[in-house]
Design a protein around this nucleic acid. Sequence first.
DNA 1: CTGTTAGCGCTTTCAT
DNA 2: ATGAAAGCGCTAACAG
Lengths: 350, 350
Amino acid sequence: MSIRDVSNQAGVSPATVSRVFNAPDTVRPVLRERVQAAAAALGYRPNASARSLRTQRTRAIGVVLPTLLNPVFAECLHGIAQAATAAGYSIVPFTTDYKLAHETHAANLLLARGVDALILCVANAARSNVLTRLRSEKSPYVLVYNRHAHHPCVSVDGRAAVTALVARLHALGHRHILMVCGDLDTSDRAQQRHQGYLQGMAAASLNPQLLEVPFMEGATERVAEYLAARQVMPQGPTAVVCSNDLLAIRCMRAAHLVGLRVPDDLSVAGFDGIALGEELTPALSTIVQPSTEIGRRSVELLVQALAGAVPLGPGNSLTLDLHFRAGESIAAARVPFPQSTHSLPRRTTP
Amino acid sequence: MSIRDVSNQAGVSPATVSRVFNAPDTVRPVLRERVQAAAAALGYRPNASARSLRTQRTRAIGVVLPTLLNPVFAECLHGIAQAATAAGYSIVPFTTDYKLAHETHAANLLLARGVDALILCVANAARSNVLTRLRSEKSPYVLVYNRHAHHPCVSVDGRAAVTALVARLHALGHRHILMVCGDLDTSDRAQQRHQGYLQGMAAASLNPQLLEVPFMEGATERVAEYLAARQVMPQGPTAVVCSNDLLAIRCMRAAHLVGLRVPDDLSVAGFDGIALGEELTPALSTIVQPSTEIGRRSVELLVQALAGAVPLGPGNSLTLDLHFRAGESIAAARVPFPQSTHSLPRRTTP
DNA sequence: CTGTTAGCGCTTTCAT
DNA sequence: ATGAAAGCGCTAACAG
């Protein structure tokens, strides 16, 4: 079932059939309809491989993300898928599980597949050999979430947002603010958020404190231990800033496990704004990044570049807006040494 | 940069280069190494489109799922991605957003792309015209989650599991058990779970009650209204069975909004076993289906069939095991007219 | 506006 | 074990 069969059936040349599919207006209506009828009758569908071989374009975009088990990336992929479909592209996703080796491997497979462009989120944009390879091979690519001056990125200013968050907590009376991060080595985003935290703490003249935990498992236990050990001490944290929402949810769980109420005894803030955060009780207070839009915009950048054949550069980077979602997991700090326990009303940040 | 360049560089014929990549053992070691060196030096990578055109195989699997915003499907896609990568396949996912038209569209695009096989979750396996098309085109495909005698499926027996769940709630003293479902029209799984619920209620001689809500948005408000209206009535539900975990989480939220405590005042059970359920407080009690494995097994089925060129049939369907995860969102029913409010200890089902 | 022709890069008989 | 040659299905000059 090839273009030949259709051209025979319609009594035209293969070229005409091709035109009907690729530039219908260049074909006389009579013939066009004859061809369309023939194609429909035969159930003809152009062969994508042949077309790609000929045109050197696959209309496919490769996607490399750490994992789909974190809703942030699932939401991003959702945006990517939407925009790609709208633009007539399909996507080929690969997942790295935060392993550097997988990053390289995935990119290789994708290039071998001949995708037209790549969207990726790497562990560390500064040290990624994948990116240098892509650049040297002149494959169009754009980073999502990662933020780096030398690469085209669609990202947010997480650093500044966390600094502002710390200020907000400080204003609520918190003096012992802990930061809980996943493995900093595998996420330059977490590093940047941590930088923001440090800056915020410095600005408030507070002592920073970092708890780095295994991100995907064991986090809850680690945090619970930490909190249990410190909850009796005066310098025990009254608030915790998490490098992402999944971690924040685990911190809330950990607090519960050691008998701390959120937000009465401990305020918990997240980062990401995953949809589920709003459904929780208490609803998660978090910095919301527009994951779906990040995905969508990255596709649009690529599609534009592909259309114009203009290579993408760092100059095309986009910084999208972030906002704080109040939720119910943050409250004013209790007075240091309360007369009666649970004296303050539990209320959400205004 | 083609096979020709490599063959020239290595001083052999293109055929030999091809053999080095596809059947290395049929080439004399000396030549093989010469070719490999040349390929490496030139950074040669075989062109997938050309290869596919020639072999009529793309080593790509199309995937059609309702959405990635429900972690169930994200987990499933995770399993699919893993298994596909392991088997040397890439995947091309499309999302339908529970729209029937998108199902057809996605399948069309995928077939046009020339994927070797399809994995899909459709709204209703019984009435899907997509499936009949696939069958008539002899494209290998397998359904995930859907369960139907005429198609190859990787699924679980949700019906039986929900029946058992109702029995469990009944044993805990619950007499007013509500079922909350998303739109039944767009999910034959929800329908089957509802069937299981009806059967369980009948077996316990209880009155079934169904609340069908918009799945993706507004669910919480709908449920809250419902609960608020009935919480004063003696036949108000003391337990609610949800057709999926996302809905269960929203029911917990709704309960909280109308002043009901979970599980003290209201037991809530889910279905799916999304990872996040365990992190909540109270931890979600739910029927766990092995989503990742569902994805993995569906790929394995396909890859096997592709390797042996044996067409897949309904006979290859797999029913995977389900289990109940206790969590903390279910408790024994309070006595109908308690002397003092909150009299029973809040404890989890054993 | 339409047809003829060449060739994208690869695999695979078929000879040798 | 290796090479020569044909062709997968399509598009894009080019000619008419």
